[in-house]
Nucleic acid binder design. Structure first.
Lengths: 334, 334
DNA sequence: TTGTATGCGTTATCAA
DNA sequence: TTGATAACGCATACAA
C-alpha cells in the first residue's frame, strides 16, 4: 500500500538496510551477488529513495542551484543538458533559478529558500560572486561555487575560449578575398549582469586580422535582438564595399544578415561572405559558416568541478578551457 | 557553533520543542506570552528551520513546482511574484521549471526529480494536464494541480478573461472615429504547447465590434517577436485607410506599430490610433492605450486554490476569473 | 495550554 | 563484507 522504503527492500533482499544504502550510493564494499539481489528487490518493489530522508540523514541537501540568465536560447538548453546529466549521475537534484531581476536574485539567496539550502551553486555567464561579498545587500552564499561560461580567478570555472573563437574567425576571414567587416553584440551596461563573452570574441578577431596583415573595414554594433540585428544588417549591406566578408559575433546577427542579403538578392558565399558564432540548429540548414561550441561538455565539466569540491577537494581555483571549432559551410563559399 | 535547531530554541525559551513547532506553524493553542518568548529566542539565535527535517517529519515536501514557458516577459515575472508571495506565506518553497523543450518536461516529472516530489503543481499558460494521462510517455502527476493564465473544466484554474479584454478593446475602438484594424499573435501549432489567450482576445474584439455595428477593415497576423512585428507593422501602415484605429493584441505588437509610425512621422493619437494589450512598463511612458491585467492577483489566487486543496479541500474544480481593465492614454487621443 | 515521546526514511558508525 | 543501531531535526499524538 504505502510507498516502499529502504526497509522493505532490505527485507525483500534478505539483507540489512545498511547494505541497501551502500548499494544505492555505490560504495565499494559490497559483494557482487549481494548487490544484484538488492538491485533485484529494488526493481521488483519499484522502490525510489525518499530524497528528504537522505537530506536529513546525510546532513546535506543533495541539491545544486543553477543561476542563469533567462535567455531562452539553445545555448542554455544545451548547457543545462550537460549540467543535469553530471549531477544526476551523482544523485544530485538541480534547481533552476532564472535571473529575472535583481530583487528576485536577492530573494533566491534568502536564508530559507531552496537556493540557499543548496549544497552548491552554479552561476552561468554572469559572475555574481562579488554580489556575495558583504555590503551588497545580498546574503553571502558560502557553499562551493562554480562559474560556467565565464572566467574568474577566485573561483572554479569552466569557460569557452571566446578569444580563440574570435581568432579562428579572424584567421579564416583573412584568408578569404574581399573586405573585412564585423558586427558585435552590444555589451550590457548593468554592473550586476555583465559578461565578457562578446568582448573576447572581438579582441580575438581583431588581433588575428591584424596579425594576418589585414584590416577591418568597418565595425557595427547591434543589441541582442533580431529586430535591431536586421536594421543593422541593412545598414551594413548598404555601406560595405563588395566583395565583403562579415564576421557576425553571434548566429542571431548572422541570421539577420542572411535574411537581409536574401531580400536584396545578394549571393551569400560569393560577393558576400558571412561567418557566424554559435552553430545554432538552423545554421547547418542555411549553410552558415560558424563557430561550434562544445556547450554540453562545458556544462558537464563545470558540474564535475563542483562535485569534486563537494567531496572535499581542496586547493586553488581551477579553470577549464573549452575550444570553439570553425565549421565551414556555404556562406563563405566553402 | 552548529546551526541552531528547534531544541536550542526550546531550551533558550524555556519551553518544549512541541511549543516551538506550534509557534512556527501558527497553531492556535499557544499563549501570547509564550509565543513572544519563543519568537524572541528564534530571533536571538537567528534560527531558521531545517526544511528537510520538516519534509520528512511532516510527510510532505512543502514544495510547489511551477511549470512555465520560458518567455522572459514582465508577465511571468509578475505572475511569479503573486505565486511566490502566497506560497511563502504558507511556508512552501517554489521550484521553477522552465518548459525548455519536451524532453525536459518528461525529465521534470521523472519519479525522483524535484518536480515529482512536489506537493502540488502550478501550470502557467499551457494546459498540460492531458499529458499526465497514461500513454503520453509522461509519468502521470497525481498531486493537486492548478492552472493559471489558462482555463479548463477538469482542474482548478485562475485565468484572465481575455474574451472580456478583447471586448473592452472592441467597444472602445468602435466609439472612436476612423477605420478599424487588428493585429493578432500567431497561435502556436505545437499540440503540446497551445494557449487560447490570443484566440480569446480576438473573439472578444470581433464580437464587440460587430455588436456595435462596426466592421474590421483588415486583420494582420504576426508571430510573437519584435522583428516580425515590425515588418507586419510596416505592411499594415502601408495598406490601411486613414484615419485608422489599430488594436494590437499584445503590447509587443503595439510597440512595433509605435516605432514604425514614429519612423514615418505619423501622429499617433490622431490620424492613427493604437490600442495595445498587457500594459507593459514602458506603455505609460509612451502613452499607449492598453489593457492592464491584474497578473499578481491572478497568481496569488491560483496559489490559494492549490493551498486549499493541500489542506484537504474537496469538491469540483473551481475557476477564478480576472478582468483586464482598459487604460486610456495618448495613443488613442485620450 | 504545554511538555514528552514516538516516528519519518535515510546515512553513518560500529561491532561482528 | 555485513547487520544492527544511533543519529538527523522536525511534526504530531498523547499525556499532563
Amino acid at each position: 500500500m504505502h510507498k516502499p522504503t529502504i526497509q522493505d527492500v532490505a527485507r525483500r533482499a534478505g539483507v540489512g538496510v545498511g547494505t541497501v544504502s551502500r548499494v544505492l550510493n555505490n560504495h565499494v564494499a559490497v559483494r557482487d551477488s549481494t548487490r544484484d539481489s538488492v538491485l533485484g528487490a529494488i526493481a521488483e518493489l519499484n522502490y525510489t529513495p525518499n530524497p528528504h530522508a537522505r537530506r536529513i540523514a546525510g546532513g546535506k541537501s543533495y541539491t545544486i542551484s543553477v543561476l542563469l540568465p533567462v535567455v531562452t536560447t539553445e545555448f542554455y538548453v544545451r548547457l543545462l543538458d550537460g549540467l543535469e546529466q553530471a549531477f544526476q549521475e551523482a544523485r544530485y537534484d538541480v534547481a533552476i533559478f532564472p535571473l529575472l531581476d535583481r530583487s528576485r536574485l536577492e530573494r533566491y539567496l534568502g536564508s530559507h529558500t531552496l537556493a540557499y539550502q543548496a549544497d552548491g551553486l552554479v552561476m552561468a555567464t554572469y559572475n555574481l560572486t562579488q554580489m556575495f561579498q558583504s555590503g551588497s545587500g545580498i546574503r553571502p552564499y558560502s557553499g562551493p561555487t562554480v562559474l560556467v561560461d565565464a572566467h574568474a580567478d577566485t573561483v572554479d570555472c569552466a569557460y569557452m575560449d571566446n578569444l580563440l573563437g574570435g581568432r579562428l574567425a579572424g584567421e579564416y576571414a583573412s584568408g578569404l578575398d574581399g573586405n573585412l567587416y564585423a558586427v558585435w553584440v552590444e555589451t550590457e551596461l548593468d554592473q550586476l549582469f555583465t559578461t565578457r563573452v562578446f568582448d573576447d570574441r572581438r579582441s580575438g578577431f581583431l588581433e588575428a586580422v591584424q596579425r594576418s596583415g589585414g584590416r577591418v573595414g568597418g565595425e557595427y554594433v547591434s543589441s541582442f535582438d533580431s529586430l535591431t540585428a536586421r536594421t543593422v544588417a541593412a545598414q551594413l549591406l548598404d555601406e560595405v564595399a563588395y566583395p565583403a566578408t562579415v564576421f557576425a559575433s553571434a548566429d542571431l546577427l548572422a541570421g539577420a544578415l542572411l535574411d537581409e542579403a536574401q531580400a536584396r538578392g545578394l549571393t551569400v558565399g560569393g560577393e558576400l561572405k558571412i561567418i557566424g558564432f554559435d552553430d545554432q540548429p538552423w545554421a547547418q540548414g542555411r549553410g552558415l559558416t560558424t563557430l561550434h561550441q562544445p556547450v554540453e561538455a562545458m556544462g558537464y565539466e563545470a558540474a564535475q568541478l563542483l562535485l569534486s569540491r563537494l567531496s572535499g577537494e581542496d586547493g586553488p581555483p581551477r579553470a577549464r578551457r573549452f575550444e570553439p571549432r570553425l565549421i565551414v559551410r556555404a556562406s563563405t563559399g566553402g
